[in-house]
Design a protein around this nucleic acid. Structure first.
Lengths: 342, 342
DNA sequence: TAGTCTTTGGAAACCGGTGTCATAAATGGT
DNA sequence: ACCATTTATGACACCGGTTTCCAAAGACTA
């Protein structure tokens, strides 16, 4: 069959049209499942398509339709695991569509951030963008998408703007539950390691902590708050600071797992046993939480479901209204929490 | 200036040509840096381009050139960290080019693997593919790329075929060094947790282990070899098995960090102290190795450099000959190795 | 000064699809 | 049987670039 083609490259719509004796347009109709084609014609053409192994050229399609089937993933997240989990979720949705996922890490602190993103959008002209925290908190990026006619969905930890472009989790409430758990175990003096300034999630988690402590009528000592950068090393330092205070807190809540793991190391270095001497709770439920010793109690937000929701919003806007876009996080109890000594 | 355009959408090459009073072809020459343009003309046109903020439409370019600027990343790796590190390295190279990275995870065990990949290649028609282990060991995938006229580079842990399409690391030698280290500390009875059947890396690491043991004149007891699946849980199980033997080995080498972390948990559950009661060495130097307690001695292969090399081979074939494609791994000494008790 | 070579610019076709619109064929109503 | 309507198909322009080929202008030679 292949010898009926003009060249040895991929067959085109013209080959299909010629070999099945219809016009390009009719083939195009069949490809696009137009109902305006007689059954006989359809079958005849489909047979040729199958024999030829014809697949429409995506670039030509993109040009004619003036849109392509690329989804960009914009991220700058210190937590590799989260990013990959998110990718995974998105791809589960895109898998059965004609969309492809283009990844684009950027540096949120670079003065060229906007220029970089603009360059990417202009150069690839993706159909839509998925924006991960903390970039999702940058309104200028969303505006850029609008300006360049690119759809977008932001992942956030609290309301940024309209529901149409947002998938969010309620971190505040989840942190509250974590504090409830510690208090129920008998802790009164709880240290807090915040995320870096500029992260909405960091803000939400801090607020959640303060609110919950207030609810239980507990004071937060001046020296019980430390700020980290969502990295292991920063958690190590911040945790060390908290543990060197006299008296030291009996529990620490860290705003993510990496920092919680760092705090756990800090405890180890001081010969403190977790959870006997110190309880620790993390946030995110990344792999490390389950793999360190002791397995760490943490807060899980349903990143896979959120990723799927975000992707669905983008590529199947008709379903968007059915899609949940507010997600609740939940406590994952493990072994890093126990009543305080004495 | 924008009001000189015919529409409010992105400016096209026609707008530029019209506004600067030259033909499309001349503009095209300028965009593509052809030397056959008079200086005056060039400057005049470049001014218009700047004012308009004109960026060539990538889809139209792709269609006319009959090639696009997409690089596909094909992976199915149980280790998220590795995949993301690899992505990072690739993107460092692609960043300053017009290429974009499209990620495509697949299931290597699916009977539809080949069909899935074919579908992806036909649908997106990427310029080139980067294939990560263990998929890189599947020759059918490479053949598929050739058949569909797609460039490819495989990441491997040992020679698969020709240098032109391969970037490799020498795991065997690195495992040898790890064994040397354990023997130097006084260990004679070393357990081994292999990777899953079907991974070239698993095979290479096992061979490296056996060779090194033989070199030191040490026996490998029948019950000192376990096989895992490169996951934490499988390492937990395999490590548990090894530690339940009587007598138990004084050291364990695991074929990756996840499994090593699992083995470490198994030790903890048996109230064994690492490294006093048991030395452990992992492989890959992923984040977990540094973040568990005690920080774990492991083997690092230069994944970032390898990723860059692979990407360079693909997008800058002229530089390919200068690019190193054989990489050595190295021991990262931490705190999980000590002389055996007694 | 005429003739030749080299640079520079443009018209038209092409890449492989889709949209518009006209026309042909089938169907229905009376 | 006839016209009106609906359904099915095709011709042709178009999306925004690149390539081929040719012509004009300028530079150089004799």
């Amino acid at each position: 069959m292949a010898n009926l083609l003009k060249s040895d490259s991929q067959p085109t719509i013209n080959d299909v049209a010629r070999l099945s004796g219809v016009s390009k347009k009719t083939v195009s109709r069949i490809i696009n499942r137009s109902p305006l084609v007689k059954k006989d014609t359809r079958e005849k053409v489909e047979k040729v398509i199958a024999e030829l192994g014809y697949v429409p050229n995506p670039q030509a399609r993109a040009l004619a339709l003036r849109r392509n089937f690329l989804i960009g993933l914009l991220h700058d997240n210190p937590n590799a695991q989260m990013v990959l989990n998110f990718q995974q979720g998105v791809l589960e949705v895109l898998k059965d569509t004609e969309f492809a996922l283009v990844v684009r890490p950027v540096d949120r602190k670079s003065p060229r951030l906007l220029a970089d993103v603009r360059h990417f959008l202009e150069q690839q002209r993706p159909f839509g963008m998925l924006i991960l925290p903390p970039l999702s908190e940058n309104d200028a990026l969303a505006e850029l998408c609008v300006e360049l006619g690119c759809e977008y969905v932001r992942m956030g930890s609290a309301d940024l703007d309209d529901a149409a472009h947002l998938v969010e989790s309620n971190d505040r409430q989840a942190v509250g539950e974590a504090v409830d758990l510690l208090v129920a175990e008998g802790h009164r003096d709880i240290g807090f390691i915040a995320g870096p300034d500029g992260f909405r999630s960091a803000f939400e988690r801090r607020e959640g902590f303060c609110e919950a402590m207030a609810r239980h009528g507990l004071e937060i000592g001046e020296d019980r708050m430390e700020e980290g950068m969502y990295t292991f090393e920063s958690g190590l330092a911040a945790g060390g600071n908290l543990l060197d205070r006299q008296p030291r807190p009996t529990a620490i809540f860290a705003s993510n797992d990496e920092m919680a793991a760092g705090a756990l190391h800090a405890a180890r270095r001081r010969d403190l046993v977790v959870p006997d001497d110190l309880s620790i709770i993390g946030f995110d439920d990344t792999a490390i939480a389950a793999h360190i010793w002791p397995p760490m109690t943490t807060v899980r937000w349903p990143i896979n479901a959120m990723a799927r929701a975000a992707a669905t919003k983008l590529v199947e806007p008709d379903k968007a209204s059915e899609v949940n876009w507010k997600f609740l996080s939940e406590i994952v109890p493990r072994s890093s929490v126990a009543p305080p000594r004495r």
